[in-house]
Design a protein around this nucleic acid. Structure first.
Lengths: 360, 360
DNA sequence: ATGAAAGCGCTAACAC
DNA sequence: GTGTTAGCGCTTTCAT
């Protein structure tokens, strides 16, 4: 009846040894004679043993201290969503009686020193695992090198640092994301249209990921042979009076038919642009509440959802899978590129951190 | 350190009783004095006890027999995906050592008798829980009434029968789905455009759900004040030579700019229509492989994903949550309306049944 | 009505 | 090296 009855006790009796010995070979803890090992292996080969994960965690009864390092959620609604995802994952594991103690560390997304400082502290605290959303490239590599050397497993999310050699990366393909934006921008537009790519309040030299989106966007049009007139703008000093001038200069582009904003900051400029030129299609990122309003009020036409919440939640789940259940986890897990429009936005709001657990 | 230390053992000692007694009040199994009950309640009120779900399932050591009833997966790739979702959920639970025995029953989606027959058999086998995708309305209500009377919990997915009074419904808001299709159809189109709604190989009288999509689609245009010229077509006899004539009559519509197919069957007609009139926008449902090709080869412009796989998987997870973990589960769980385009389709293919478990 | 105790499958400490 | 055993937190049976 039961699909998987075989207990380690059964294996033991089949191999004529004790459970202790079986356990030793299952986890190669050594201290087992070549003879016993062989007999056990033989049994193992023919029965396809699957350990009972539930009994396993209960038996281990171990606490894991893992620390998450993300940009300060108080500073940006996007990172607040990541934070919520971590919380949600933590709570879920707790409910199951899995002792995953999550500690949160924050850094200032505009100060690499702040990242490095927190990183160092984390390293010295010798956690069992680390989960990090690293915005800086070269500034963060030493940290990951240290973690690797100490064999502290770590997972990256949001931003991919290939050289970091993480256990796993969770995020999206940003080049494809840019291409998708290009496609959405292009639907039903006039052939002579021109477009603006806008990076809001970002130091591009530190933001390889935004550049990737831009490449993707341009690539889409280039491959179609109509790469004409795509302008890039970098907006800074959001508070200053100069800000509006910067927006005006975008609107000055001849035949401007669309603006692609590379981050969740699209809400900062959508309303103004749309008011000045209703024909301009606006595309940006993420379902933070400002952008939800933007969609519903008609200032924003498309949002591509990066799903920071689910990324973060999957991050801690993956760590649990690796640490507790000794599962192999994929070296890279790319989220789907979700297209949000005024008509489907509410359907995405219903279950924010959803679909990510036995307990939903 | 541990976020949730309190064991029922602790409660027992705090209340000056034994674990057995605490367990009895926790699950109101009766046989406990008013005095003891009061003392335990008092402790419970101040400590926010959360049972360790892992220990709980291990302790119970109970087998659940649940049966799933869906249209025959061999007959339709759409239902094959549902089947895969069930399988995946079953496997996941098995890995954790949760004894969830899933039995599969199939019916012919075009014969209500076939549904009724299987339903009856299921009822008489007295399962612990039932999961069903009910395509027929009135023909299936008696079955659900019986289940209710016998207190056999059941969950519906894919098609909502409000009167069935299920434990939970898992699916999508089809009216909104139709509206979304309208919006996608409308982007950048000429004001004088006309559109066709096509139902492929369906008996509409039995398919309330398809009518809902149609209403949503029409509603989108009506609310905008340009409801002009939307035609509805019902295609039958796919094999016959008359089929092509039916397609031609669609193409005959003046100013035809788009065709909205209400099911996954869109692949059957997309290529022909697109070849005859490349300007026609084609929108349909679901990421079955035929439609994936359709997107990639340019015959289909948009797919709205209903995610049958995840629906089914969530179905069995919900049943497990309810049966095993005594969780409250939402009476209706609506999936997001996912928009798939040629540019983001691959991002959806990577992890088909994903994001639905501790074990990912 | 209540408590004691065995058992779920696995881990890990301990004795030999 | 190997087997035995207590224990993880909860359920359930069995005396009392």
């Amino acid at each position: 009846m039961k699909p998987n009855n075989i207990r380690i006790k059964d294996i033991a009796s089949m191999a004529g040894v004790s459970v202790g010995t079986v356990d030793r070979v299952l986890h190669n803890r050594g201290k087992v004679s070549r003879d016993a090992a062989r007999r056990i292996e033989k049994v193992l080969n023919k029965i396809n043993y699957k350990p009972n994960l539930i009994a396993q965690t209960l038996g281990k009864n171990k606490n894991y201290r893992i620390v998450a390092l993300i940009p300060n959620p108080a500073l940006d609604p996007y990172w607040k969503q990541s934070f919520d995802g971590l919380k949600s994952g933590e709570e879920q594991l707790g409910q199951f009686g899995i002792h995953f103690i999550l500690e949160y560390k924050y850094y200032d997304p505009h100060k690499k020193e702040s990242f490095q400082e927190s990183a160092l502290k984390i390293f010295h605290s010798h956690p069992d695992g680390v989960l990090v959303a690293p915005l800086f490239y070269y500034a963060s590599l030493p940290f990951f090198k240290k973690l690797s050397e100490t064999k502290i497993p770590f997972i990256l999310f949001n931003t991919h640092l290939v050289e970091a050699n993480a256990l796993s990366f969770i995020g999206q393909d940003l080049f494809k994301s840019g291409r998708l934006a290009g496609e959405l921008m292009n639907i039903g537009q006039q052939p002579n249209s021109s477009y603006a790519i806008v990076h809001v309040n970002e130091d591009l030299s530190n933001s390889v990921h935004l550049v990737e989106k831009e490449h993707g966007f341009r690539d889409y049009f280039e491959k179609r042979g109509d790469a004409q007139r795509i302008g890039t703008f970098i907006l800074n000093n959001l508070k200053s009076s100069a800000f509006q001038n910067q927006l005006e200069s975008i609107l000055q582009m001849p035949d401007l038919s669309g603006v692609y904003v590379s981050t969740s900051k699209v809400y900062l400029i959508a309303q103004y642009l749309k008011k000045r030129n209703p024909g301009v299609r606006i595309i940006g990122y993420d379902l933070i509440k400002e952008n939800v309003s933007g969609l519903q009020e008609g200032h924003i036409d498309f949002i591509i959802n990066q799903n920071p919440m689910r990324q973060a939640k999957l991050g801690i789940q993956s760590l649990a899978n690796y640490l507790i259940f000794s599962k192999q986890i994929p070296s890279t897990y790319l989220f789907p590129l979700e297209v949000i429009t005024p008509e489907n936005v509410t359907s995405y709001l219903a279950h924010p951190g959803n679909l990510a657990g036995i307990v939903v």
